[in-house]
Design a binder for these strands. Structure first.
Lengths: 340, 340
DNA sequence: CTGAAAGCGCTAACAA
DNA sequence: TTGTTAGCGCTTTCAG
């Protein structure tokens, strides 16, 4: 490894002190424009690259933000992260990025390593498994900003940004009723995950709002994979009286359901309408295209970043709860359009 | 921010010196088991967390690896990264992760920030735009390990890991010929990107191998988006004599092509067989499922990580070319199975 | 406007 | 086996 130029090297060339160089590079107000210019010129000539590590150690600010993502292979998360990164980069922060792979243990280790790396803040979305929050208390204890998003609606008193799952279900049911559905089934996620539970509650209350009877056999809890969706749909088709609409709490499950419907020559949406959740890219690519809930991925990413920056700036910051809940948006596509 | 425990604090408690503590924590051979135990006990009690920054600054090793990805919203890249991360974490490295978004400028800036962060190595896949490699020379000049993967087959003399695109085309054409195709079209990527060029060359040579005539109008270069695939497929359908097979150099383009075929009531694979490239998840989800090339994502991720670790270990390392080329694998699905 | 000097937390060569 | 000492590269008071 070649030795790199340091501010000391620049100082030597110009016969000034390292501190002057440091100030010049940071546009300190009380430094002459002449030296500023000179320093910058020499810096460029010597291909000076600031050593962030040293700066971080001295100043106590690493300019690093740790992000924990449950999975990368979901369009939702990757676009959230993309926007977060963009926003943070603008303000001179770099993003260290780890994935928990939906494992609680990995999540704990992620936090450990991020803290060791001296990140200035942590942004996280919980795994499906996470029910205990004690590992997050450590972060709180250190009083570094912690922002949760999407999966992380919490009682531990830290910032949270996500969409209104309860209301989303209302939007979906409203739409399906309007399209003429009378018996809407719900392929649901596991109830112990807060967001899925909220979707179930929203579904139930929305039915009541429309004076539709609640039929227990129309709520099928499970994992929201393609295979899961297939199984649940097959169960639904075996019922003495079939539903005329299916609301799946995830797009992959919706796709599985669609496959089963098509294989059974059931017309979508005429016989059974279908709505998914998350706006995964494939929903617009299959035939018929699947109606789905758009979670404002980009905006969530940006908001999370901004919230972090706000916390970071405020010196007197203490961990505190502050929820930002966005309304989701229904994207109506062919799979649920019974009327024109 | 609360003040954190340092090795000095531990030293004070035990009335020993910081260096002894440091050694104890690192299981230095020449330190008594007694002090080791004592140090570790106190460390736990005080919730000591090593400050990687300080360690990095002192030792010149940040234990950080920078990874540049063109896009995260591709299944290929996310699974490569996932496996890379896993492998590197095992050896105590953390991954800093940036995306270039297929922009040359962003790629340059990414390198800049990674170097400033004092990463111990850089792992990158080039953007589609990248034709000039001068920004990578900087990394070479610093003599820190640089590994390229997938897009990055290079003449700059650094390690590269990817699949054999030329051969992949052969595998595809062989398969299609075996299925009875006589006129195979190629929806291609832009020729200036090496991997797409290799796929084109492979396609051409494979046709020759099978004594099939090369028809220029059957090679359509473009961006491999869904929309791009649609357009090219429409062009192909306008030809006086239609092809009986389509090989798309990307799955999204293959999907676009499939949509057009289905909209025109053309039977797939009976009238026109279809093969894509990359094994994006949706290929197995659409109907008919799309045959495609699997690029050994997981293995590539692991190999890249291992290659980095090898370079890192070898103190006498100098930038040098070392290619690892994997054979890709064809996943045959309904879209190309003319025979049983 | 600039210089001198101290130190962030840790490691490692050299002593003892 | 442990202590001493010096310093990684940078920032930041405190002087001048």
């Amino acid at each position: 490894m070649k030795k790199k130029t340091t501010i000391k090297d620049i100082a030597n060339v110009l016969k000034i002190t390292p501190s002057a160089v440091s100030r010049a590079l940071h546009n300190h107000p009380r430094i002459s424009d002449k030296t500023k210019a000179a320093v910058k010129k020499v810096a460029k000539e010597l291909e000076y690259q600031p050593n962030q590590l040293a700066s971080a150690l001295r100043s106590g600010k690493s300019k690093l933000v740790g992000v924990i993502v449950p999975r990368t292979n979901s369009h939702f998360f990757s676009s959230v992260v993309e926007n977060m990164e963009e926003e943070l980069n603008k303000k001179g922060y770099n993003v260290i990025f780890t994935q928990s792979n939906e494992s609680y243990d990995k999540e704990c280790r992620n936090i450990e390593t991020l803290l060791q790396t001296q990140v200035d803040g942590i942004i996280a979305s919980l795994t499906n498994e996470t029910v205990d929050f004690s590992h997050y208390e450590k972060i709180k204890a250190k009083e570094i900003p912690l922002i949760l998003y999407d999966r992380g609606d919490n009682d531990i008193g830290v910032d949270y940004i996500g969409i209104d799952d309860y209301k989303s279900s209302h939007i979906v049911v409203d739409h399906m009723v309007e399209q003429g559905c009378k018996r809407i089934a719900h392929i649901a996620g596991y109830r112990h995950t807060r967001i899925y539970n909220n979707r179930i509650k929203g579904y139930i209350d929305a039915l009541e709002k429309h004076n539709l009877p609640l039929e227990k056999e129309l709520i099928l809890e499970g994992d929201l994979t393609v295979e899961g969706g297939r199984q649940k749909m097959e169960e639904l088709l075996k019922l003495p009286q079939r539903p005329d609409g299916v609301y799946a709490a995830g797009d992959y499950a919706a796709l599985g359901a669609l496959q089963v419907l098509l294989e059974n020559n059931i017309k979508v949406p005429e016989e059974i309408a279908l709505v998914g959740f998350s706006n995964e890219p494939f929903t617009s690519l299959v035939t018929p295209a699947i109606s789905t809930i758009y979670q404002h991925n980009e905006q969530i990413g940006k908001l999370v970043a901004k919230q972090f920056l706000k916390r970071e700036k405020d010196k007197t910051w203490k961990p505190q709860l502050n929820k930002i809940i966005l309304d989701a948006e229904l994207i109506v596509r062919a799979s649920s359009k019974k009327k024109e």
